[in-house]
């Protein structure tokens, strides 16, 4: 039986946000230990595809979300910023793990003490490294934020 023709009222913003959070593609920005857990999150056992996230784009120009997975050194920080700048708007950043969020246990000359000094961060994930469940929770938190419009800066 065919559905009767219906209509839907919504704001443009909520439609746009709905489509944004349902397919937020990540840029691969695996740096250190957390990248392995990020790989595990995307692989069969944890299956990030359930949340419309199975594609990690190799090119930042095709990505909406940068998951900074690991410690960011002083030498890497300009590269990180450049990759972030190459991503199209709107874009989001998840800082995965203690090192990316605050330098972690390495408070020394070589590391940027928190990636939020270089790029704006939306969600921080604690843990060293955070397990796949933590990362998925962070991604779902981000999705909620995008859906409600809280995290959209355009």
């Amino acid at each position: 039986m065919a559905e009767p023709p219906g209509f839907l009222t919504a704001t443009i913003n909520s439609i746009a946000n709905w489509s944004r959070y349902n397919s937020s593609w990540g840029a691969t920005f695996g740096l250190a230990c957390c990248a392995i857990e990020m790989m595990h999150t995307g692989a069969a056992h944890n299956d990030l595809a359930r949340f419309g996230m199975e594609v990690f784009r190799a090119s930042p120009r095709q990505a909406d979300l940068m998951i900074v997975a690991g410690r960011v050194s002083q030498k890497m920080a300009p590269v990180l910023r450049q990759v972030y700048d190459q991503m199209p708007e709107p874009k989001w950043v998840i800082s995965m793990g203690a090192c990316a969020s605050s330098g972690g246990m390495f408070n020394n000359y070589a590391l940027v003490q928190g990636v939020d000094q270089v790029v704006p961060v939306d969600v921080y994930v604690p843990g060293c490294p955070p397990g796949p469940q933590s990362l998925m929770h962070a991604i779902l938190t981000l999705h909620e934020g995008i859906k409600s419009g809280e995290f959209v800066r355009v």
Partner: peptide, 22 residues
Amino acid sequence: GYLHTGMEKTGETLTFLQGPTN
């Protein structure tokens, strides 16, 4: 060098028992 973490320097500030953490 893009992941240089300064672990050898940090290792000098941790005790031998804390060393494996590093």
